[in-house]
Design a protein around this nucleic acid. Structure first.
Lengths: 192, 192
DNA sequence: CATCTATTTAGATGAACATCGACGGATACA
DNA sequence: TGTATCCGTCGATGTTCATCTAAATAGATG
C-alpha cells in the first residue's frame, strides 16, 4: 500500500468496525482456525463466519490453507502493519482532506479501461451524461467541426460515435447545422 | 488508553468507518474548522456535521475552541496515536481473542441477580444446560450426597431444586442410587 | 455412484446508523 | 429588545450491513 487514499482506509476501518471480525482477528492471530471452529468460539453460524472471513480476505489480511474440505485461516500480520503506516504519519493524515474523488470522477474511473477507452456506454442516463460532459473536453469553443472530425474525436473513447453525438446535441453541449458541429457554452448545457 | 480492550477498539473503528468522519479528520488535521465550514466542504448539512463531530469528541479526538457562537474544531493527534499503539503491538492483538466473555459466561451473567441467585430457569434447553453445568461446581467428585443436601446446594441458586436435580441426572452430570447422589466425571456429561 | 462433511452462495429480515428538516438555545449586534 | 448567526437536539426516513435459513458446491469416503 504505497499511499493512503481515503477509499482504502475506509474499507479497512469498515472491516475492523465489527465485533465479530475483531474477535476473528484475535483468534486467527493465535493460530490457524477453521470456519466451524470460529463459528463455535464466536457462537455464530458458519455462513456468518464465512461472510466475515471473505471481508477480511478482500483486504488481504488472511492466509488460507486448504486441507481437504477444511479451510485453515491465519492472520497475515503484515497486512495490518501496512494499514498502520498508511494511517499514522501526519502527512498522510491531512491528505484525507484532499482526495475527494467526486461522484462524477468515480463514474469516469469506473468506466475507463487502462488504455483510456470506455468499457461500455453506461445504461444509466445520468452516468452517460457524465461521460458525455467529460468528452466535451475534446472540443474547443468557437471552432467548427465537420461530422467526420466529430466522429474521429468521439471514437477515441468509444466506437459508437453516432449515439454519443446525438446525445450531446440533446443535452445542448453540441449544436449542428448543415452537418457542421460546434461546441456550445458550458452554462447552456442541460443537466441530468 | 492503558490496554486495548475490544470495546474501546471497536468504538474507535466504528468512528473511523465512515467517509464523512474520515474527511473531517483530514480537514481538522490541517487547521481549525467551524461547523458550517465543514458542512460546506463536505457538502453536508450542519446537523449532520454536528452529529459526526459529537462522535469524534466522544473519543476525545478533537479540541474545540469556542469563539462567540462559532465552534472551532481541530484534531488532537495524540488521540490517534493512543489507538495506534493499542492496536498494533502484537501482544494486544492476540488479546482480542481472550476477552471473550464466552457465550456461556454471558448466559450466566444474564440470569444472575446481584445476590448470586438466578432470576428464573431459562426456557431455552441449551441455556438451562449452561446453568446446570455451572452449578455443578457445588459438587465434588468422589463424595456422596443425600437428597436433602443436594436440594440445599441447588436452592442456593434457585428454589426449584427438583427440576434442576432431575435435569442434571438427565445430562449425566449427577447419578443417583437409593436416594443418594454423586457427581459423574466431566467427560461423561452429555452436551446440549 | 451415494453419502457425509466443511464451506460458500443467495435471499430475507431486522437493527444500526447517516442524513435531513424543523426547531430551540445561545451569542452578537443594531 | 429584536434580529441574525451559529450550533446542537429531536424525530423521521432511507440505506447499509450483520445475521440467519435454505440450498448449492466440492472434497472425502465407502
Amino acid at each position: 500500500m504505497p499511499d493512503a487514499d481515503i477509499a482504502t482506509l475506509l474499507a479497512f476501518f469498515k472491516a475492523m468496525a465489527n465485533e465479530s471480525r475483531l474477535r476473528i482477528i484475535g483468534l486467527v492471530a493465535e493460530r490457524e482456525r477453521s470456519v466451524q471452529e470460529l463459528a463455535e468460539l464466536l457462537d455464530l453460524k458458519e455462513p456468518t463466519v464465512s461472510h466475515h472471513l471473505a471481508a477480511l480476505k478482500a483486504l488481504d489480511l488472511l492466509h488460507v490453507r486448504v486441507e481437504g474440505v477444511t479451510h485453515w485461516h491465519r492472520l497475515r500480520p503484515e497486512g495490518l502493519h501496512d494499514f498502520n503506516r498508511a494511517l499514522f504519519d501526519q502527512k498522510d493524515l491531512t491528505a484525507l482532506a484532499k482526495p475527494e474523488q467526486t461522484w462524477e470522477e468515480k463514474v469516469i474511473a469506473n468506466f475507463l479501461l487502462p488504455d483510456g477507452t470506455l468499457k461500455t456506454l453506461p445504461a444509466s442516463r445520468r452516468k452517460r451524461w457524465v461521460l458525455l460532459k467529460w468528452q466535451m473536453s475534446g472540443f474547443e469553443e468557437g471552432r467548427r467541426y465537420p461530422e467526420k472530425e466529430v466522429n474521429a474525436i468521439l471514437q477515441r473513447r468509444h466506437p459508437d460515435a453516432a449515439t454519443m453525438r446525438r446525445e450531446m446535441i440533446g443535452w445542448k453541449m453540441l449544436a449542428r447545422e448543415n452537418n457542421v458541429y460546434w461546441r456550445l457554452p458550458e452554462d447552456q448545457w442541460e443537466v441530468a
